[in-house]
Nucleic acid binder design. Sequence first.
RNA 1: GGGCGUGUAGCAUAGACUGGAUAAUGCACUGGCCUCCUAAGCCAGGGAUCGCGGGUUCAAAUCCUGCCACGCCCGCCA
Length: 602
Amino acid sequence: MELLRKVLEPHLAEVLAAAGLDNLPWQKMLTIARESAQGDLALPCFPFAQILKKSPVQVAKDLCEALQLLKSQDTYFNEALLSVEASNGYLNFMTNPAWIAKQILSQYDENSGKAANKGHRVLIEHTSANPNGPFHVGRARNAILGDTLVRLHRLHGHEVQAEYYVDDMGKQVGILSWALDNLDAEKVSEVLASAGRQDDLGPWQGKQDHERVRWYQAANIVKENNPQVDEEVGEMVRLSEEGDQEVLQSFNDAYQPVLDGMLDTLAELGIEYDAFTKESKFVVDGSVGLIMEQLETSELHGTADNGAHYLELESKGIKGKSTKFFFRRGDGSSLYATRDVAYHQWKWQQCDRLINILGEDHKLQSRQVGIALEEVGQRVPEVVFYAFIKLPDGKMSTRRGNVVFMDDLLVEARAHALLAVKELRADELSQEKMEEIAEAVASSAVRFNIIHVAPEKGFTFRWEDALSFEGDSAPFLMYSHTRACAIRRKVAREGHDVEALIEKAKSQEVWNQVGDSKSANELLRLLGRHLDVLENAVDNHRPHLFASHILALASAFNGFYRDHPVIFEGKVNLLNLLLSETSRRHLASGCQGLGVIPIEEM
RNA sequence: GGGCGUGUAGCAUAGACUGGAUAAUGCACUGGCCUCCUAAGCCAGGGAUCGCGGGUUCAAAUCCUGCCACGCCCGCCA
């Protein structure tokens, strides 16, 4: 409740100073009250009690009286603050609902719920999955988390560039490329069958990420009993690291169709990128070489027996079996992490703020890269780590084929959503319309299921949760939004001009009519906090906090919807219309920020 | 061996960074609500020694510390 806080703090400061209590960090103690019945903000008076040698109850009472006096003397303060009360040693502050309604409703326009542009350039790198097979729900946590942050930053008024770093020169691509050169379809089927792998493309025949991952898996099986494969792959990888154009081209031919297939899947989830940057770029343009030369002048630099170069990071607080960070092999070539340093240097050239989305397995490496960046005079990026998604029976792995494909999950989710919409609307909507709705519900639900839990928390994928369309879920949000849309449609259908009515409502200052309705006031409270929550979620990389807020907002809107008809027997209540439309805008933009599609009916 | 993270009703989660009143939400469970803007909804109810022990504090799910369990990491791999 930052709105009230701004008005309250100067007055509170005055009262506390008069009582000799202003040297305590009381701004921090002033918290959002847990129970809305207790007020909007609360100040516990226990620490004051110790200083004044009075009971907390008495201190609260005294402060309360002083504040009430101020309130009666200051018109604006009096307008904003409905009441201040002392209770159990707490001071409880209640905002005047009409005042808060004025703050929010008088500002209504098509940008309600969005923050103003801040001209701040943010680069977010996410997904960056090896292009060796179809997207599974494990890999998807990165893409969904990353894309949600991209959307929330945009909603918050940042200029965002979304980057996909394409690993086009590693061992994994090498294996894929080797397989396509050395195995044929028959051999692949044979190898997979002999290893007891399930080998049924089902509906994904012809989709290249699904097709080619079989080659990748087969090659992995073949190489277990044939060391020559490793040698051949190793040689190609070595050549790629030297920037050998022919090898890089054959790698490119191997992975590009796979990457395209993966991107098709991501597009179904509404995930798109502004730029794709290839790892080989930094080898070819020489920047990796420069980085290695710079690192060799670092005070942390050391050389191994065979001529490999490293940074000794013990003094930087790195602990464990090995504290060395190798950045150049004995043969002079670079390593993945070295190229990552060059990549970061390049990224910093195009943004004010740099954010990476990484799995928790990259924590150490990320610290090492950060230290190396400091050694070459660059800033350290912000990193969001997430824990892995497991299946009930263990970890997912593309190599071993123990996965739930995102493509399959989406098909299943669409089928469930279609079933639901048919049950409810079959006699009103066309088949085509229902399929459209099912598609939006499916991708929204899949994303929300992943985004609403804190990134650092482990996550077990369960079909029943992913396909649950009730309660704390995307369809719940979407449904609230469709209700607001239904209201708008009904008002228009009965011959009113909605925008004209809104202008009329504003000119009549309908917010002054706000009464003591619990549901309407709860809705106003949440609308008042909307941008505060967004800012917190963006600054701290915690999208699930915004998800929780939008759930609460949708729930509050449902309460308002129940209690306050907007149009009844042809007559429009202007205050309720304005509140409904404001909520609709906030819900729609909030949904978009979470990757939930705010469709108009379902 | 060491580092990092997680542990909250039967299940899944929020709250922890920044200590504050009766620990919030959904699923599941019990009961109620569609002549009224979409019931994917709403209302009411039962269900929690916040992993375990100690400490700091007027006040601890939250901070410190020890232990236990789970996950991730400690490659001249990517």
